[in-house]
């Protein structure tokens, strides 16, 4: 589009008719393919949890739309029909009515219960960290992520930083058009690799300030807090292998906007191969990257 120079894919979805865009957009979103943001709604994602969340989100969204239609409808009706300029006379006897007030207290309560039940079910599911098959220790730094594999992949340990070309382009007055950079700001030098169909547990912590790890398609987000370890798990549905992207979502200083999360999901077989390759690489490497010092004084 002329204004933004956007690619064709996005051009079709533009327009200032915001309300219309929202409604039509959200319905279309249900059918959209995972792993490509449609630009205006959550995606169903590639894990059971993310799909559950998406369903909850849509359910609650439509409930709110429903309430809005009723409430705003009543308001608009009043605005049209009870106008002073049209000679409307106020019914000043209408001061209160215990009956309707009870009704409009109880109905929202019921609606809220309807929303809360599926939400509570999902929470229970999310909090069930049992039986994880692969654990990875994830440490946030200003401004990169460290991935230390445990369990069967013990020994694999690397940092993941914003990719070079994004990093050049994002400098102030770089003169590089971000649109020419593939996956601008969402690409790293070395992504985290995980197997599909496997319950992967992340043990999140941080070395300096609070960061947060998020991959929208997994419905997985959690803070990385210095001195504490938070748990987070996800299990990518088999068949949904691919590259998934997210970002640090807790303000962590100057380059908070520039510490993406990239996860490369492979089939368990491919993953095994990757692990073997990594392990031999680690053995061959003369200098193993030393584990960063864990100083007692986390703040200084």
């Amino acid at each position: 589009m002329s204004l933004t120079g956007m690619n064709v894919e996005h051009a079709g979805r533009r327009g200032l008719a915001l309300g219309a865009a929202l409604l039509s957009g959200l319905t279309a979103a249900g059918a959209a393919v995972a792993n490509t943001s449609n630009g205006y709604n959550l995606m169903p994602g590639v894990t059971d949890i993310s799909r559950d969340i998406y369903a909850l989100h849509m359910e609650v969204f439509w409930i709110c739309v429903g309430i809005a239609v009723v409430v705003f409808g009543a308001m608009i009706y009043s605005l049209i029909n009870f106008r002073h300029s049209q000679g409307a006379v106020a019914d000043t006897s209408m001061r209160h009515s215990t009956k309707v007030e009870i009704i409009w207290t109880i109905i929202p309560v019921i609606i809220l219960v309807v929303m809360a039940i599926p939400a509570a079910e999902i929470i229970l599911k999310m909090e069930d960290t049992r039986d994880s098959e692969l654990s990875i220790r994830v440490t946030g730094y200003q401004w990169k992520w460290q991935y230390q594999y445990m369990d069967a992949a013990e020994g694999i340990n690397f940092f993941s930083t914003l990719s070079q070309d994004s990093n050049f382009a994002r400098q102030l007055h770089s003169g590089i058009d971000p649109r020419t950079v593939p996956n601008y700001l969402l690409d790293v030098d070395k992504p985290m690799v995980v197997p599909s169909g496997t319950k992967v547990r992340l043990l999140l912590t941080s070395q300096d300030v609070i960061h947060a790890w998020w991959v929208p398609d997994f419905g997985a987000k959690r803070s990385a807090i210095p001195g504490f370890v938070n748990e987070l798990w996800f299990k990518v549905t088999p068949g949904k292998e691919g590259i998934y992207r997210g970002q640090c979502v807790a303000l962590c200083g100057r380059d908070h906007g520039f510490m993406p999360v990239v996860v490369d999901v492979r089939t368990p077989e491919e993953f095994k191969k990757w692990v073997e390759a990594q392990k031999t690489a680690v053995k061959q490497a003369a200098a193993i990257p030393p584990e960063p010092p864990r100083s007692a004084q986390l703040l200084n």
Partner: peptide, 21 residues
């Protein structure tokens, strides 16, 4: 829309899919 599409807050710059909104 930006938020649902995944744009974090408190960032000075963003991925190109967030440009329009």
């Amino acid at each position: 829309f930006l938020g649902l599409a995944g744009m974090p807050r408190r960032v000075p710059d963003y991925a190109v899919q967030f440009s329009d909104w």
